[in-house]
Design a protein around this nucleic acid. Structure first.
Lengths: 229, 229
DNA sequence: CAGTGGTCTAGACCACTGA
DNA sequence: CAGTGGTCTAGACCACTGT
């Protein structure tokens, strides 16, 4: 009879899945539920709060709790460092720096990261291999005005990805997924045909409002990013 | 002086960001923190639990709480119904059914969804338009053994996506993102060149372990899926 | 076995908001 | 203004796990 918050959560989910509480329907309030489950209100509260976080129900003070009409389906992705991603699949990771140059940020990058004219940036291109096969081509820009120490870093052996994670551990990011056609350079580096469709990730990272870095990652043809929800 | 769980969470985050508690470092236990923040242990617990959920810290009974060495960066995506996705951008949504057929599930689909041989499926292909422009090509398979009523549904006016959300509101799903080259049919439907790189979403949905549906969605060239984390 | 986090409780006060 | 969820508290017991 003693219900845990997991029991309560599961039972509410069941009632919703079974159609007992239809989309849009009002769910009893916390006090009533607590009584019917024979537990404290705080227990019901935790169950309901988690369901609300997951987008299953919608809660409003005074108005009560309702089953969402259009359930907000959401998926969570882990965003690993490339090395970890490969090693988790028991692959042998190898990294190689292709090019490195210091310049003023080009216009498209300044616009994208809201950088002032003349901001110095470090531009790196590199490759990541799994078991000797091309895995990912990385096109990386680092804001030297904010991270001058990047100029002294040795990116010949350590990938910028790992260097940044170690240097700027917690930051905000905007990430976007898309598809791109392989141009000559990409085809060459990834050992694929020109025009091949490549899964692409772009990410810009900020620390307290200041743009730290921008990266484009092109994955080998056929790459998938998978999750459950 | 009265710290809320938000205060505690923010302060812990600050200490970690500032390097006061380095990656791998042991964080004081809940009782000590509660005392230093002048709040109840439950308050500290909630703050820490949320940070652990977000992948910032790692907690183990008896061993205590540590700052994660490799912070698990994770992003959340809302998975909207196509119509909502378009209408949220103030676009005019239009739907069209291209083909509809009933058949036994082909081998690749049976393997993918773990269906027995001979399982009847409904195969639909359709298009979604935004402001009259091709937006997404949908290739949908519905398990008729589980959802026989799909055969009677009129998919000429209502997209299978919306029909399913209304019929099977809560289910588990596996979703994966990739890139695909447009073949003749896709190029034709999406008004793009053959070989264009298309952002692609595949999703298989289960209800209590039973496969309900599988879908491949091909987006128009240039489509991006974006989020912050 | 002892220390740490995980959870529950009963009660309280507060914040928001619909009627 | 009254009902609902949001949060905090002080205390308790339990589950796990390192030593």
């Amino acid at each position: 009879m003693k219900a845990t918050f997991r029991d309560v959560k599961a039972d509410i989910m069941r009632k919703i899945s079974a159609g007992e509480w239809a989309p849009g329907a009002l769910i009893p309030n916390e006090m009533d539920l607590a009584e019917s489950y024979g537990c404290a209100r705080a227990t019901v509260n935790r169950a309901m709060r988690e369901l609300a976080d997951e987008g299953v129900i919608e809660r409003r003070r005074k108005a009560g709790t309702r089953v969402r009409i259009a359930p907000v389906r959401q998926a969570r992705f882990a965003i690993p460092v490339v090395r970890d991603e490969i090693e988790e699949q028991n692959g042998e990771y190898r990294y190689a720096l292709i090019s490195r140059s210091k310049d003023a940020a080009p216009g498209w990058l300044r616009a994208r990261l809201q950088l002032p004219e003349g901001t110095p940036v470090l531009h790196l291109t590199c490759m990541h291999y799994a078991d000797g096969n091309p895995y990912q081509y990385e096109d990386r820009w680092i804001n030297l005005a904010l991270l001058p120490q990047a100029e002294a870093a040795d990116f010949a052996t350590l990938g910028p990805n790992e260097w940044l994670v170690a240097t700027v551990p917690f930051s905000d990011a905007e990430i976007s997924f898309s598809a791109a056609s392989a141009d000559e350079t990409l085809a060459d580096c990834l050992s694929c045909t020109r025009g091949a469709a490549l899964f692409t990730v772009e990410r810009s990272t900020r620390l307290e409002g200041e743009a730290v870095t921008f990266v484009r990652q092109y994955f080998r043809p056929g790459h998938r990013m998978t999750t459950r929800y």
